[in-house]
Nucleic acid binder design. Structure first.
Lengths: 257, 257
DNA sequence: GAGTGGTCTAGACCACGTA
DNA sequence: ACGTGGTCTAGACCACTCG
């Protein structure tokens, strides 16, 4: 028995199915053949057929729903605008920018807030210049849309600045945490945005109900006050199947080199 | 209710190894036990051990190098600044912004350029408002650092604007394609940045030499001239193990809501 | 109860780099 | 030549949802 050139059998299975997905033969939401059907059609065992499907799942093209079968994945991208989440709000809103933006699009946003005093994770301690062993305040928010988890938004503040303030209450801050920071004498005048991309942790998979093959963007915002001290670090975890990050540039806000 | 939930065997293997990776017992670059060693330690078959390792590979924590073994993955993030890639350059450089930025950091940047006239992919046609069936000019660049592929940068232009110009030559445009566009009467005054995150296509895996478990960011820039016509669409494919996207905001360039 | 995918075993042979 | 991971077979039993 000689082996054919085109590579592993499971690869041929994956390639054929992927071709059908990308050319529209199998449109989003369509059901794929069952594992047994694939095994018979390609004359392999079920395990080998599964390996081909696994590759498509890993590539985010297919989801498995037990016991219905495998389906072509569908996507729905909501706009995520870092520039809208910034600085004290000029007009007093009842909700924060997330809630306002979503409500204005006819969605049903909810969020679960929890506040804690914790040892900051290293990526936060670096950016806040937190001394070793010192703890910080974190406001953790799980934002949902129509009952489905949407993204995570964890804001970290130095205890020395926000201790005892409204920020430590686990309730909506209608006028925005940034406004409160400004009232506390630390208005933010500059922010640094960093976007990392990676696969989610098991904890993130669970909290955000992520399908297999869904990477996340980690959007880290560091806010600085007028004395250039970091007063706020936000870790946003954005599932890739629900977000597109958007921002605009004009000549005036483009960096001079 | 003392029923323990140890879960699948491969999951326990993955969990134990992941714990050792995240707590530093297995630092970046360290070699993991071989598949046979894992199979013996957990008293399972090699296939089951492989399934545990596969999960870690999918999560981007581990790479497999045949026939050496499995290793904890290491990352190296270079800064990627969308704001630096914009508008005509104020001072005439010999290289484009990528080459300049990298050289200034002591790297050895190279790029392979190829120019073609093609039917635009749908995401480009939408943004350039290309009529059905009309073709566009694309400058495709594979940028490398120290001989290793780094990212893809494909710039699309309407034929009506750049036809016959310097942009159609597959050579470096020292003063930048944006400067050439400006000379052709289409200076860009505004740009829209969109960032999608997804798993790479097989073609991208090949062209960028991506390891398994490496998602990519797709950074799409649409440039508009003073009459608000789209004159340029750039598709950047940024491997997550080599890029962090960075931009800065000050009060003046933050959106008013 | 039927049928789906999920897990697991006990083998086998192959491809490939290093010693 | 050896040991690694990569592929594949031919079974088995389980968990879950739907009709």
């Amino acid at each position: 028995m000689y082996r054919q050139r085109p590579g592993p059998l499971y690869q041929q299975i994956a390639d054929e199915l992927r071709a059908q997905i990308t050319d529209g033969t199998l449109p989003p939401g369509a059901q794929l053949p069952t594992e047994m059907e694939l095994a018979e059609r390609f004359e392999v065992t079920r395990q080998t057929a599964r390996q081909g499907l696994a590759q498509l799942i890993q590539q985010g093209l297919v989801v498995s729903r037990r016991p219905q079968g495998h389906f072509v994945r569908q996507w729905q991208h909501m706009l995520y605008r870092p520039q809208a989440e910034f600085m004290p709000q000029p007009h007093a809103p009842e909700m924060d920018s997330f809630m306002r933006a979503m409500t204005s699009e006819g969605r049903e946003p909810t969020q679960k807030i929890d506040v804690a005093i914790v040892t900051p994770p290293p990526e936060v301690a670096e950016r806040l210049h937190t001394p070793d062993g010192e703890m910080v305040v974190v406001r953790r928010r799980l934002r949902s849309l129509a009952g489905q988890p949407f993204h995570l938004n964890d804001s970290y503040f130095p205890r020395s600045i926000v201790g005892g303030s409204e920020i430590m209450s686990p309730a909506d801050i209608g006028r925005g945490a940034n406004t409160v920071l400004a009232e506390l004498g630390h208005e933010q005048v500059r922010a640094l945005d960093e976007i990392y991309v990676r696969m989610p942790t098991p904890d993130e998979v669970h909290r955000l109900s992520l399908e297999q093959g869904t990477p996340v963007a980690l959007h880290i915002v560091t806010g600085f006050d007028s004395e250039d001290l970091p007063v706020r670090v936000v870790l946003n975890v954005l599932p890739s199947d629900r977000h597109v990050i958007v921002f605009e540039r004009t000549r005036s806000n483009s960096e001079a080199e």
